[in-house]
Amino acid sequence: MTKIIVITSGKGGVGKTTTSASFAVGLAGRGFKTAVIDFDIGLRNLDLIMGCERRVVYDFVNVIRKEASLNQALIRDKHIKDLFILPASQTRDKDALTLEGVAAVLEELSKTFDYIVCDSPAGIERGAQLAMYFADSAIVVTNPEVSSVRDSDRMLGLLSSKTKRAEEGQPPLTEHLLLTRYSPKRVARGDMLSLADVNEILAIPLLGVIPESQAVLRASNSGDPVILDKESDAGQAYLDAVGRFLGEEIPHRFIEEKGNWLKRIFNLKERETV
């Protein structure tokens, strides 16, 4: 059975596309045939993060309008043979997507793919609702700040009412929280909400915590999703999250301040000198 995953958030710029790219790579790396679709029509981004922007000929809208076949539009990933990217159109706007069109594309992909990852645009409008409509699982990407948490909460409300599963009274989709751009240091300083704060408000299972990391910007610039950077904290955090998504029990990392023991020693010394 093909599984459709939507990566969504409500708020913009929280790391949906970064997550979509890394998740797609992670799932394909585990041997699942995976497609990742850019639903952000007009602001295409996924192809850049995946490093395939120079190979885009046809896009999602072309396929919906039957101007190209799905096979013509799908781009094979440069690293992993079981991974394909369906890019967004740069020139069209969000109204180019139709429910029937999206349904037809997902149905055709479902014949051959194990996982379909849908990178949602920001907002709660049509584009975001189309991206979530057919989903079996939702990964709600949230930054540890009040407005992002509020938007994620709003999104969870829509996921429970505005999806095919909800409308047809089928079992609800599975919800996962992915807390990204987390900085334990800033949490300690009180600049950011803590993991506990966010958990208390959203109250859905935690898939992982992705630390704020320089590696993400480096990865975006080079067009290699950060999950491929196995040395980096963010890369490891995404690998863990994919494992947990597949049902593995992996303890959470990157939620404590780094070098805490060092700090404790310094604190001790300071106290001694006082």
Partner: peptide
Amino acid sequence: TTPIRSGM
């Protein structure tokens, strides 16, 4: 019995 989220 289900959470009532922001906007609902």
